[in-house]
Design a protein around this nucleic acid. Structure first.
Lengths: 123, 123
DNA sequence: CGGAATCCCTCGCGATACTG
DNA sequence: CAGTATCGCGAGGGATTCCG
């Protein structure tokens, strides 16, 4: 295996969770197992292609498990692996900081964080 | 001010520290004030343009301070703002997780994390 | 329903050169 | 030394279509 050089260890972390949507996906998964369609609904801005791609990479890095139920219609679920759960504190902190940041910038976080469904086609 | 919609609070965090190099820059700054040239040396892969750009955005978001010393030759330093220090726990956790991840993947972190200077033109 | 495969285009980013 | 300006490439990612 070719050893990759890092100048600082955080670079290794970013290779795993640094993708455009990866932290968002992982945060959702800290709330429990999710179906593909659920994830898509929770992230109105993501495309099918990107969702699949990011999920594959997270799976390759061992932080999530892909669970395929052999049935019709198909049903696929994703959940954090044991290794993935080692990121929980980080993910929680990232979310918590985001809330404080929203309050700082906008003054009232409740006016900003809204129902996902409402955003479906608002852009 | 136009209120931006977030579907989950971590998205707000990623707007601030989600840039390609931002976490790396911030991690270095948790070790103290740095000059521009120091940062460049600590991040052999970054270009002057990207460094300036990322620093400007971090400054706009209020997490770092830019300190200009009026002298010749020019001397500019960057340091975490008080607000930026509120990210310290997150940044430390990201670094710590990266170290564990390197060990997990490569078995021996000491073989991977090396002197920055050595990487200058290795790619 | 979940995902693979194509086409296609934007714009992120690097390379280079220049300024104070 | 720190930063700006300009050009241009190509990978990242969007839209669409097809498959099991």
């Amino acid at each position: 295996m070719q050893k990759k050089k890092y100048n600082i260890s955080v670079e290794a972390t970013l290779e795993v969770i640094g993708g455009k949507w990866k932290c968002v996906i992982l945060c959702h998964l800290t709330h429990g197992k999710k179906r593909t369609s659920e994830l898509k609904r929770l992230m109105p801005g993501i495309t099918q292609k990107m969702l699949t791609q990011q999920l594959r990479e997270l799976e390759e890095d061992g932080v999530i498990h892909r669970i395929v139920h052999n049935q019709v219609p198909p049903k696929v679920e994703y959940e954090l692996s044991e290794y993935g759960w080692s990121l929980q504190d980080i993910l929680d902190s990232l979310c918590a900081w985001g809330e404080k940041h929203i309050s700082r910038v906008y003054g009232d976080k409740f006016a900003v964080l809204e129902e996902n469904v409402l955003n479906d086609k608002l852009k």
